[in-house]
């Protein structure tokens, strides 16, 4: 049982870390600010989500797990809104900023 949970943690956290890497590659390769914003929001949010998912079995108790999930929700929600603000700034100035 413990081993199964550990395997779950290792695979989910690894997947999350890979998404962070992919997000960075996107920031490096994408041609303009707005496409880079896509990379930052969607990929990194998924990365954090997978890391949180992987850490859930390692927390003590239901509420510890809930705390991690609520941090992820907070990041996801504010990230979704802040990204639109930055995107609006980019659009008003033209894509090259």
């Amino acid at each position: 049982m413990n081993l199964a949970l550990d395997i779950f943690t290792v695979s989910a956290v690894s997947a999350g870390a890979l998404f962070f890497l992919a997000g960075t590659v996107g920031l490096l390769r994408f041609p303009d600010s707005l496409t880079r914003l896509h990379a930052l929001t969607k990929v990194d949010n998924l990365g954090l989500g997978l890391v949180v998912l992987g850490l859930l079995p390692q927390t003590n108790g239901l509420f510890g797990a809930l705390k991690l999930v609520s941090i992820w929700l907070l990041v996801q929600l504010s990230g979704a809104i802040v990204t639109q603000l930055i995107a609006g700034t980019v659009r008003r100035r033209g894509s090259n900023g």
């Binding site: 907070l74 929600l77 809104i81 802040v82 639109q84 603000l85 609006g88």
Partner: peptide, 14 residues
């Protein structure tokens, strides 16, 4: 900006 308004409605109670 209605986007910023939305953030300022949701985040402060949290």
């Amino acid at each position: 900006s209605s986007t910023l308004t939305f953030l300022a409605q949701l985040l402060p109670p949290v």
